[in-house]
């Protein structure tokens, strides 16, 4: 997809630290969970940025920051040129219209006591300028039709739908305000395998139809590759590598990306004995006390002294075509090498 014109979403040096406190009466801050620690990227109209990483790497905190559900410690988020992070009141409300979210769990993210019509129509209560009152029911039915649900089911309750259908309800709610950006936080991981493809296809169709930009957060790397134009790999609150899908998947340069890609089981038993497998030792360190220098160095097989002393910047390295935050970045095609 073309990345031309002004980006619809600009994120600069976004930081979110959650304070760790001690004491009951007098709370003292004794440290901070560095959930998101200096993240920057752009997103253009009609483009999909996939975000991958292990649990605890800050993917979901990033999503909340983009939605202004959390206040960033520092940094800016600009949606269609307007600063979201420091906006308040009516301004915030107006900017928020442009960025909506599809949640992971279609079972808990829909209120069981509201009908589908109320759930999908609720955004119109808050932003009444989008759909005048008398018009809303028709609008909701149109939305249900767009996501492939029967518009006559407007009075049903969430429990009357299957998981895949509920996720469609969540998507219809995200679309209601005609946003430019939709943040999808693990939109298919709670669904059965045979249903996932249906929802992915729907998201792609909607993107083409409405020229939407997606932030697609997921841990299933093959799904991310299928839907994303660009992919960012996160580790302990930082983006360690970012690039076009082919750059990340075929020519990864950061050791963490290589390990992550090699750990994904390939759904083909052919040649499984000779497949290269980088098995990382241990678990990711705690974001409350990340290692000095490069955060990946404690699990990295390339680590040297410089890695502990100097933090590698996310920049284009010699011999590579996309930014990578590793002192020893080197192209290594783990998926196809065997």
């Amino acid at each position: 997809m073309a990345s031309k014109g002004e980006p619809v979403l600009e994120v600069r040096d976004l930081v979110k630290h959650f304070p760790l406190t001690q004491g009951i009466v007098v709370k003292r801050q004794v440290g901070a969970i560095k959930a998101v620690d200096g993240v920057s990227f752009d997103l253009h109209r009609g483009e999909t940025l996939g975000i991958v990483g292990e649990s605890g790497c800050g993917k979901s905190t990033l999503a909340k920051l983009l939605m202004a559900l959390e206040t960033p410690t520092s940094g800016t988020v600009r949606v269609a040129g307007k600063d979201l992070a420091n906006a308040k009141g009516a301004d915030l409300k107006r900017i928020r219209r442009n960025i909506q979210m599809v949640m992971q769990d279609p079972y808990t993210s829909l209120n069981p006591r509201m009908t589908v019509g109320d759930i999908v129509g609720e955004p119109f209560e808050i932003h009444s300028e989008v759909a005048p009152k008398g018009d809303r029911r028709k609008k909701v039915q149109e939305l249900l039709d767009v996501v492939g649900l029967n518009p006559d089911h407007i009075n049903r309750y969430p429990h009357q739908f299957s998981g895949g259908q509920r996720q469609r309800i969540g998507i219809a709610r995200g679309l209601a305000l005609q946003p430019e950006v939709i943040v999808c936080d693990e939109p298919v991981s709670a669904l059965d395998v045979s249903i996932q493809a249906q929802v992915i296809n729907l998201l792609e169709r909607l993107q083409n139809e409405f020229d939407l930009a997606y932030i697609f957060i997921a841990h299933d790397l093959s799904v991310v590759r299928h839907i994303s134009d660009r992919v960012a790999v996160m580790y302990l609150g930082k983006i360690v590598e970012i690039g076009r899908d082919t750059e990340i998947y075929d020519r990864p340069t950061h050791p963490y990306t290589q390990a992550l890609l090699s750990a994904v089981p390939v759904p083909d038993p052919e040649g499984r004995e000779n497949r290269e497998r980088i098995i990382l030792q241990g678990d990711p360190p705690s974001p409350a006390n990340p290692p000095s220098g490069c955060r990946f160095r404690t699990r990295c097989w390339k680590a040297q002294e410089i890695c502990a002393e100097e933090e590698p910047l996310l920049q284009i390295r010699p011999g590579a075509d996309h930014p990578s935050a590793c002192h020893f970045a080197e192209v290594h095609d783990v998926v196809h090498a065997s």
Binding site: D192, I195, A197, Q198, I200, N201, H226, P267
Partner: peptide
């Protein structure tokens, strides 16, 4: 159907094969 619904590299930009209906 399950095997065909796995996203493959050469299918990028196309619809995935989806088993229709529900379990």
């Amino acid at each position: 159907g399950l095997l065909e619904s796995i996203p493959r590299v050469d299918q990028k930009g196309q619809d995935l094969y989806a088993i229709k209906g529900l379990p």
